[in-house]
């Protein structure tokens, strides 16, 4: 099983998925991330999936789970860089990401988190 590295940039955690995710890696990532959000006091999580070639229902559910979990830990989640083919397939599959925020690329994801931070309560 491969572990996905979690990078920290200021108060944002960045996960760039570069491997073909198997179900074990997905579960491990969820656990690792929850720990890091708490220990780093992160206010935002960005998951970069620009290298991900397919998302099935299991991986799709991971995004919703991570977002829900992070929200409880007071962090916003943004999924960035979804490929058109992946997006079309998800729609056909009938899978919505359950209100997960998305952005076209990493830069726009960071901007979105800043925007959300401005609107939210000061911390």
């Amino acid at each position: 099983m491969e572990r996905v590295p979690i990078l920290k940039l200021g108060d944002i955690l960045i996960i760039s998925i570069q491997i073909d995710l198997d179900d074990q890696s997905v579960l491990a990532l969820q656990e690792d991330l929850a720990d890091r959000v708490v220990s780093a006091g992160a206010r935002g999580v960005i998951i970069d999936i620009s290298a991900v070639e397919i998302i099935d229902s299991f991986i799709g559910r991971m995004f919703a789970t991570i977002a829900g979990m992070c929200r409880m830990l007071d962090a916003e989640t943004v999924v960035v860089g979804m490929r058109p083919a992946v997006a079309i397939t998800l729609v056909e599959l009938g899978l919505s990401l359950g209100g997960v925020r998305t952005a076209l690329n990493l830069e726009k994801g960071v901007a979105l988190l800043d925007h959300l931070g401005d609107r939210g309560t000061p911390r």
Binding site: E53, I55, A85
Partner: peptide, 11 residues
């Protein structure tokens, strides 16, 4: 796109 669809279905 069709590759992505069939691979997803296979998964």
């Amino acid at each position: 796109i069709d590759q992505t669809k069939i691979v997803t279905a296979a998964s």
